[in-house]
Design a protein around this nucleic acid. Sequence first.
RNA 1: CGGGGCGUAGCGUAGUGGCUAGCGCGCCUGCUUUGGGAGCAGGAGACCGGGAGUUCGAAUCUCCCCGCCCCGACCA
Length: 575
Amino acid sequence: MLRMSTLLLRTLRDDPSDAEVASHRLLVRAGYVRRISAGIYSWLPLGYITFRNIERVVREEMDAAGFQEVHFPSMLPKEPYEQTNRWEEYGPDLFRLKDRKGNDYLLGPTHEEMFTLMVKGEYSSYKDLPLSIYQIQTKFRDEPRPRSGIIRGREFVMKDSYSFDTDDAGLELSYQKHRDAYIKTFTRLGLNFNIVAAMAGAMGGSKSEEFLAPCPTGEDTYVLCEKCGYAANVEAMVTKVAPFAGSAPAAMEIFDSPNTPTIDSLVDLLNEKFGGGYSADQTLKNVMVMADDKAISVLVPGDREVDLKRLGANLSGISDLRLFEDADFVKFPGLVKGYIGPQDAKKFGITIYADPRIVVGSHWVTGANQKDKHIRYVTNGRDFEVDAYIEAAEIRAGDLCPSCNEPVIIDRAIEIGHIFQLGRKYAEALDLTVLDQNGKSQVVTMGSYGIGVSRAVAAIAEQTHDEIGLNWPREIAPADVHIVATGKDESIFATGEKIALDLEAKGLRVMFDDRKDPSAGVKFKDAELIGIPFIVIVGKALAEGKIELRVRKSGEKSEIDAATASDTIYKTVTA
RNA sequence: CGGGGCGUAGCGUAGUGGCUAGCGCGCCUGCUUUGGGAGCAGGAGACCGGGAGUUCGAAUCUCCCCGCCCCGACCA
């Protein structure tokens, strides 16, 4: 039993000045967490109970799926991370330290290397696979910007799993098993979530999906089709286009266009010159980008910007992307800033990437590669060739869903889980092989799967709180029932105590506000703030043999008989 | 890393060169009170983020440093 008279808990009446998002504000006010440093938090008793409840649910679901739990140290030697090149690649996000002999260590940001080596150390036959193992572990990442309380911390707890298979079909199966286990886990945690297509990107590998908990203060933006349920990370959103249906255009025609530095000014000029009917989406923007010191041109309709994040995610093998600067234009004298068109790109030796909307046969108004001149009827396939189509244009609400053609919305969410088909990147780097049926060495293929356990505390708080406080689903709440004793009569406290003990005997978890001093109002406010799902009030109604039972979520109140209170409460709670 | 804001008691804050740094919450003692953050009386708690400087005098002005929050870049 949690007794409030002795519980290490001090609720705050005012919002802490450094907290903005609801979960952070309420978790601090209700005495669940305290900030130690930027992105580093301590858990007080209520918070730690809640955290462990979530951890327990995650563990139970992983075990139920047949995954085995292991545990690695947080502090790890540099060498495995050098073998996979991540000692370098991770850059300043990696917490590094040295021992007294000057050897390098790191605080693990994620544990692919260690898991791979563990399997390598124990297994060497295809008969041992498939295998899925996991740990629940504190991770360290020196984030450039920790924020939103425990949503993005520098120290956080993650459940990370890894699957090991001999072939792609096996990996797909392991991936699906994790996907199913994640669905069960998040459903049990009471979270609303969408599974969205994501880019595997920096982790290497192919298929990847994110589990996103929608919430207005979330930091991830994603695309959602409310009609068919299609959901995708902005980077992974696919543009659906129809083939060009119009008639063949006239030959290219150059025209004067002084003082038209922007698309808007160009559209105005077009309408003035050619009698109206032009809009920005008929113009073609040639965005020059430096991709690891190679100049590329990205074509997008004039009404859209290039989204460098999308471009980067869809261009494989490029580590540094930036827009052309003046110094770059100097290196390409043929490119007239503000008047670039794709029709001469071959001459300049520039690779052309195009948004899928630039379909073969479509014609565009674009720059004439001469100062103060534009050109129209520039036709894809006739006047220029696209080297590769790429998803690089910005995504907007109202863009069409690639699976059902309805307009999509853009929504915000907290990322609570991520599943990847990693492939053989780590197994190759660390030489994890098994012998197959023919006695031949096979490189193992891997999947990697994460759940933000500490982050889930905040995500659930975000999705379930209301104006007056936290509001936990029963399974993860710090207790099932919060009994408030209020009044001066000793029988009130004795009755509260009796009900608490009865409920505990029935297997419920109880928090008992047995404090003598605080007034009724204080106790009610605290109970609402703390957010245990059922609140029982033993107070002045006891004189008439009544006790009040409240449901935190709905605010519903009922009077029950004191004599049979624990039975009634038990039934209501477990209903 | 760029832009903006902030740092005064456990929390929220007032205080733009002048007395012993003020108030609310919380905390301690006593009395009263007990169904919506009670009342009265008394009390404890602050090297005003740190350092250097200007000044007769600095929380207040100047410089440097540190820390924190928000937006962006970046990232689970």
